[in-house]
């Protein structure tokens, strides 16, 4: 029989970390300039694909880089920093290559229709908008916003993964570093697929909140983030309870 109350009491700290990680992912997605199908036709600002693909691409890279660091050190700060940077690098590369395609391939200047002046560079935006579009490519403010968002996503993903492994650590009697450096340890697979599941849930929730597209933190839709954060908080907490029983009870 599983002592669920005991497991929860023992791992309450890691459950809170998982929940925090889920909320960070959810908030991070609001920063990422997601253009969706309109952006794929250069008719809206941002990268031309869906939230889930972008957030998952950046966040899962963060998860992998965080995992790689876990095999080397037990230091939580280093693991989380590695996850954050992994996410940031991934989204930067995606946005940079997307930018090349928009500028040199499609032939449009990066401009946002949501603001008159770029909040960071103070460049005039409205003069460069093609008629009938809502902006195109990735202006500076969206790029900076995207890097912040992916950083939060990578941090959140790393946090979830680390906390999941820490829960299993108690049950397995090994440190996270030992678990990660053991080839084929079953805890790694279980914790990573759990982290991926939690990650996808928290990437889709904000995507429904913003209705599919957002330009970054200067977009009026960004103000809706508390709603997604609240939803993610509840859903991730539920998942954290499930995780503690699954991993802690092993």
């Amino acid at each position: 029989m599983i002592d669920i109350a005991g497991l929860i009491a023992e791992n309450i700290m890691y459950m809170l970390l998982i929940t925090l990680g889920g909320v960070l992912i959810s908030v991070g997605v609001h920063f990422v300039p997601v253009g969706g199908a309109p952006a794929a036709m250069a008719q809206a600002c941002g990268v031309g694909t869906g939230t889930v693909q972008l957030a998952a691409g950046a966040g899962l890279t963060g998860l992998v880089t965080a995992g790689a660091m876990m095999g080397v050190t037990d230091n939580m700060g280093l693991v989380l920093a590695s996850g954050t940077l992994g996410g940031m690098i991934m989204i930067s590369v995606t946005m940079l290559v997307g930018q090349w395609v928009y500028v040199y391939g499609v032939g449009c200047p990066p401009a946002s229709a949501k603001v008159k002046y770029d909040p960071i560079t103070k460049d005039r935006q409205d003069l460069y908008i093609s008629q009938g579009t809502e902006g195109h490519a990735i202006p500076t403010v969206s790029f900076v916003s995207g890097v912040i968002g992916a950083g939060l996503g990578g941090l959140g993903g790393g946090l979830v993964y680390y906390a999941l492994l820490k829960m299993g650590e108690v049950a397995a009697g090994l440190t996270v570093k030992d678990i990660m450096s053991t080839t084929g340890h079953e805890l790694v697979g279980l914790a990573s697929i759990f982290a991926v599941g939690i990650f996808f849930m928290n990437a889709v929730i904000p995507s429904y909140n913003i209705g599919g597209t957002i330009e970054g933190f200067h977009d009026p839709k960004f103000k809706k983030w508390p709603k997604a954060a609240l939803t993610s908080l509840v859903v991730t907490l539920l998942c954290a309870v499930l995780a503690v029983v699954t991993l802690g009870g092993m």
Binding site: G36, G50, T51, G197, I198, F200, V204, Y208
Partner: peptide, 14 residues
């Protein structure tokens, strides 16, 4: 949904 259909499939498997 306001966003692509793929999001809901990923949510389902998540």
């Amino acid at each position: 949904l306001g966003t692509g259909v793929p999001s809901i499939g990923m949510l389902a498997l998540g």
